[in-house]
Simulated assay, not measured.
Amino acid sequence: MSRISVRGIAVASATAVTAVGAVVGLSGTGVSAPAGAQTVDEASTTKLLEVPAAPQAQELSTGIIQQADAQTAAYDEAQRVQAEEAERQKAEREAAEKAAAEKAAAEKAAAEKAAADKAEADRKAAQERAARSENRGAVEKVSASAADAKAIAQSMMSAGQYTCFSNIVERESGWRVNATNPSSGAYGLVQALPGTKMATAGADWKTNPATQIKWGLNYMNQRYGSPCGAWSFWQSHHWY
């Protein structure tokens, strides 16, 4: 805010008063001057008028300056308060937005976890149902296929080798497809250890006698040369 020059106001006022005195014919002695006479010395008149006006001009100048300073200070304070309020509102908005984002993220994570947990629970339940169904099917198939296992074995090897193979299977599992050793966990006709080894011969290794015989015959041929070689070892060690 620009300030008014008080000195300029005082000088202008003094000049105006001097001019008025000249017009009405005032002189230093108070006598009217004749027409055409020289007017009173303006410099002297100006000095006389300025002397009493100086304190008033100074007071006016000081008052205006103080008022301007007060208005400037008030304006600056208002601007500061307004800026602080704007900053506070901005901080509150940012905090609210952050809280909302964190809440949304937490809710999304919780929903995803709940969905994943449900999917895992459904998968385990399906596996359990399938296992129960497979076990029931295995029991039913064993009762129907135990007698047929020998015929399947006979069709896969010579009569001499079948005799040796049958001697081992009879002692290991009694020709039960689902025979399980409670101590070692060996499984099936040929008591594979672990039973999952027979998966190389077929995915149905738990219930299909043909798959188990195929795997057992291949094992005996690779390890002992033949079922009879395996039977010879078994007689000496009671395992093969």
Rank of each mutant, 00 (worst) to 15 (best):
M157N: 01
M157G: 06
A210M: 07
N167T: 06
A146R: 14
I213G: 09
I213P: 00
G202Y: 08
T207Y: 11
T180Q: 13
A151S: 14
S183L: 14
S155P: 01
N167A: 15
T196A: 14
S184D: 15
T211N: 09
I213K: 03
G195C: 07
N167K: 11
Q212H: 02
T180M: 15
G174P: 04
A192I: 02
R171N: 14
V139T: 11
S143V: 10
T207I: 14
A146F: 00
R176D: 11
T200Q: 13
W175R: 09
M157F: 05
M156W: 00
K150P: 03
D204Q: 07
K150R: 15
M198T: 05
I213R: 06
A192G: 12
S155Q: 13
N181L: 12
S173Y: 04
W205C: 09
A159L: 07
K197C: 02
G195T: 05
T200C: 04
S158F: 07
K206C: 03
Q191L: 09
Y162S: 05
N181Y: 08
A159C: 02
I213H: 06
V177S: 02
T196H: 03
T200S: 15
S155V: 01
L189W: 05
A199S: 12
K150W: 03
A144N: 04
T207G: 10
T163Y: 07
R171I: 02
V177C: 07
A153H: 00
R171C: 09
S145I: 02
P209D: 14
A153V: 01
A201E: 05
Q191C: 11
V139F: 08
K197W: 06
N178G: 12
P209H: 04
A153F: 05
T163G: 10
N167M: 10
A199G: 01
R176V: 07
G174R: 09
G188E: 12
W175N: 08
S173W: 07
R176I: 01
N167S: 15
P209T: 06
T211D: 10
S166T: 00
A203G: 15
Y162A: 09
A199C: 00
G185D: 13
S173P: 04
